[in-house]
């Protein structure tokens, strides 16, 4: 009798544990469903709204005044200019800093500190970067400018490039460096001719990721490059950019502007996704070779 009861107790305990496991499994499935569901919902809506406004005019015409039809030519062009500017300013600094951390001072205190600070810069709020550039460039110069916008984005490029450069150079096998040194190659040439070549794909990935990161950034541009309703190539004057135009148009009451905002959002998202997929592919090929 007692044995029978003990057996029953055990059985019910087993059942309870199995039930808890089943509940957890269902919850995990549900959570994954929620995560993937959001992605589908957001991308679906974006494709739907964005494509319905997509036409050739988007790429050939300027931003319209309220209530008229038009395109996004000047903000697309402005965004390209700002991105190129940011990459030109940010990449060399990032690569050089990453080089020091991986090649010269791998075990330095300086490297540890820079790595820590760099990781914080990597996720620091981008609007603060906008305030910073406003303080050091826009306020002294007395006006908003494309140059200030480019520098603001460059501040966001630097940490990404530093991080990937350091990581990729650390992965370069020491045998390559030793071989180069043994034939009398100075350290700087070993780095620029041998290590950079070996880590090329990874370092390029870093730059692509940085471009992906900044191409959707709005906050740091709001009060640096501001916006410009017209075609402008002057870096010393306010310049239009896609994210800022989306921000302005989406919050406007005009239907035409809102439609253009969706189309602009679609263009940015596609560009960012294409960049991250390319970066992934690059990493994959780099690992194989």
């Amino acid at each position: 009798m007692a044995e029978h009861m003990a057996e029953q107790l055990l059985q019910s305990r087993y059942r309870g544990r199995r039930r808890r496991n089943a509940v957890a499994t269902v919850l995990a499935l549900a959570a994954t469903g929620i995560g993937l569901g959001w992605l589908v919902l957001i991308l679906g809506e974006l494709l739907w709204q964005g494509f319905s406004g997509l036409s050739l005019a988007v790429f050939t015409e300027m931003t319209p005044p309220p209530g008229a039809a038009g395109g996004l030519l000047n903000p697309i062009f402005g965004s390209l200019i700002l991105t190129v500017l940011a990459v030109i300013i940010g990449t060399p600094i990032g690569i050089l800093a990453g080089t020091y951390m991986a090649e010269y001072g791998r075990h330095d205190v300086l490297t540890t500190v820079v790595r820590f600070i760099n990781d914080i810069l990597l996720s620091a709020p981008s609007i603060v970067v906008g305030l910073f550039i406003y303080e050091i460039m826009v306020a002294p110069m007395g006006h908003f400018s494309g140059l200030a916008g480019g520098v603001a984005l460059a501040v966001l490029v630097i940490p990404v490039v530093v991080r990937t450069t350091e990581d990729m150079l650390t992965l370069v096998p020491n045998a390559l460096r030793e071989a180069a040194t043994s034939i009398g190659l100075p350290r700087s040439l070993t780095i620029t001719r041998i290590c950079y070549r070996a880590a090329r794909a990874g370092m390029l990935t870093g730059v692509l990721l940085a471009v992906a990161r900044i191409s959707g950034e709005t906050a740091p541009l709001l009060f640096t490059s501001l916006n410009n309703q017209f075609w402008s190539t002057n870096l010393n004057a306010p310049i239009s950019s896609l994210p800022v135009v989306i921000f302005q148009f989406a919050l406007s009451p005009y239907k035409d502007w809102q439609a253009l905002a969706w189309t602009g959002a679609l263009i940015i998202t596609m560009a960012v996704l294409a960049l991250s997929i390319t970066a992934r592919a690059l990493v994959a090929t780099g690992k194989q070779s």
Binding site: L96, V113, I117, L121, V128
Partner: peptide, 19 residues
């Protein structure tokens, strides 16, 4: 070259302090 890379690394610290 060594000093250049070192300056860039210190530049990251300067950037944060400047902010």
């Amino acid at each position: 070259f060594r000093q250049l890379t070192r300056a860039a690394a210190i530049g990251v610290l300067v950037l944060l302090s400047a902010v």
